[in-house]
Amino acid sequence: MSRQIQLSPSLMTMDLDKFKKQITFLNDKVNFYHIDIMDGHFVPNITLSPWFIEQVRKISDVPMSAHLMVTDALFWVQQLIDIRCETICIPAEVINGMAFRLIDQIHDAGLKAGIVLNPETPVDALLPYIDRLDKVTIMTVDPGFAGQRFLKVCLDKITELRRLREKYGYKYEIEIDGSTNLKHWKLMSDANPDIYIIGRSGLFGLTDSIEDSWNQMVKEYEESTGYQFDDGLYVASH
Rank of each mutant, 00 (worst) to 15 (best):
M1P: 08
P9K: 02
P9V: 08
M12I: 09
L26K: 09
I35G: 09
D36F: 05
M38D: 12
D39H: 03
N45W: 04
W51F: 15
Q55N: 13
R57Q: 14
K58L: 14
I59C: 10
M64K: 04
S65G: 05
S65Y: 01
H67E: 13
V70N: 07
D72Q: 05
L74D: 14
F75L: 14
L80T: 14
I81H: 02
I88R: 08
C89N: 14
I95R: 02
G97K: 12
M98G: 13
D104K: 07
Q105W: 00
H107T: 02
H107K: 05
H107S: 02
A113K: 01
V116P: 01
V123N: 10
D124W: 00
D124R: 13
L126Q: 12
L127C: 06
I130S: 12
R132L: 14
D134H: 03
K135N: 07
T137H: 02
M139H: 02
P143F: 04
G144I: 11
K152A: 04
E166M: 11
K171S: 13
K171E: 13
S179W: 00
L182Y: 01
K183V: 09
W185K: 00
L187N: 09
L187C: 04
M188W: 00
S189N: 01
A191E: 09
N192R: 11
Y196N: 06
I198M: 06
G202T: 03
L203G: 13
L206E: 10
L206F: 03
T207F: 04
I210Y: 08
E211D: 10
K219D: 13
E220F: 07
E220W: 05
G226N: 11
G226H: 08
Y227W: 01
F229N: 01
D230R: 06
L233W: 00
L233A: 04
Y234P: 03
H238A: 11
